[in-house]
Nucleic acid binder design. Structure first.
Lengths: 215, 215
DNA sequence: AATCTACCGTAGCGATCGTTCTAGTTGTAG
DNA sequence: CTACAACTAGAACGATCGCTACGGTAGATT
């Protein structure tokens, strides 16, 4: 009686090897970019021969796409957006900003790798870049819904403007931290950003009541 | 009578070849990043053999550093910061934002390449990355002075916060445009950004008189 | 005319690239 | 036991990598 295993896939360390390969690949890709990520370097860092990498992944492009996918899932798990609390809209949007800031500190690989891939514009787009743009669009949609529920008076064009500005600010603050380190407090900058985004949205939709502006 | 040429350096197309090499290199580096920029590809695009590239530049790292340097000078020429006009601080800071926005549309290579290089973190840093970080620091210093003259009541810590937020926003908006194109009006986003930065600074230094907030 | 410097063209070096082939090895199923 | 699937090991492939050696050519200097 085999019992525990439902599927036929057994044999010990297949999944672990896959994770080790991905771990090595995400490190090297973060250091050296797409072209700089050589199979030999990944092989050396994870301790498995190149042929093992090619057993787990079709080719280099497939490997890098898997790296993006996994780092996205890791990041998604790191963001826990605050639920439907009963605070003011300002408090809620600041809470969202804080959650995003914390997730980017805990799991920066996704955005770092994604931005590196997104900045490149090679004739034939790597699959990883497409994956990044796609999941990023999902994130944008999620945030759009947050804005819409928090500020129902905002017309769609203004929503788009606010969301774009909010995401751009998040990208920029993340970049700042990646490049210069914590020259200023990252979480505090995100809180400032959230406040400013909210103020901007308020100015666009004057019908919304303004909560306590001064302490 | 040779006449026109003052210096001894003549022989036709040396400088022009150098420019052609740099033109090709900036294109390919924008498409494929540091490692992706192969000498063979640059050679093919500019029509000069690899040996000519190595006559003009010591090695690949030197070439990429020169690319960053030249694209920085091009960008610098594209920004013409508004002089000491007599408008309100808000008007002046919005004008600065508009000037930066226009320059990034006209000469995006510097920031695009620089960010690509800056995001990578290889064991041995490319010279181009150091060059980028250095001139970027100069730009930050310039903007710090603008803020200090416009808002003399702001204490240094707040100045740093405001400047960091302003630059991060500019980076983020630029990224947005690079990745998604003009999904929303780039110049308008920069104006919004300038306004928000100014409002944030005002809130930090309550002593400053506030100009016309509402039209 | 002779020389020199600036620059281009060809060929090729050793190293590394992505990828594949083939031959193991090892846990599980019949 | 045999059979097979899951995985690893090592060697090697053609292509391309960064880079160099070297000879040629054309304006400037003498």
């Amino acid at each position: 009686m085999t019992g525990t295993q439902l599927t036929r896939r057994k044999r010990a360390n297949g999944v672990e090897s896959r994770q080790r390969i991905l771990d090595a690949a995400v490190q090297i890709a973060s250091e050296r970019g797409y072209d700089g990520t050589s199979i030999a370097a990944v092989s050396a860092r994870c301790g498995l021969p190149a042929s093992s990498i090619y057993w787990h992944f079709r080719d280099k492009d497939d490997l890098l796409a898997a790296v993006i996918e996994r780092s996205f899932e890791t990041w998604l798990a790191a963001v826990d957006l605050p639920g439907e609390e009963t605070g003011t809209p300002l408090q809620r949007i600041v809470a969202v900003g804080a959650a995003v800031a914390a997730s980017l500190v805990d799991a920066p690989d996704f955005l770092r790798l994604g931005l590196m891939l997104a900045l490149e514009r090679r004739p034939e787009e790597p699959r990883g870049r497409a994956v990044f743009l796609q999941v990023r669009e999902v994130a944008r949609q999620k945030f759009t819904e947050v804005i819409e529920t928090l500020l129902p008076d905002l017309d769609p064009a203004n929503v788009r403007t606010v969301v774009t500005y909010a995401l751009a600010g998040a990208d920029g603050l993340f970049l700042q931290r990646e490049i210069h380190g914590d020259v200023v407090d990252f979480t505090a900058m995100f809180e400032l950003h959230a406040r400013l985004v909210y103020e901007a949205a308020l100015q666009m939709a004057p019908g919304t009541p303004q909560d306590q502006a001064q302490p």
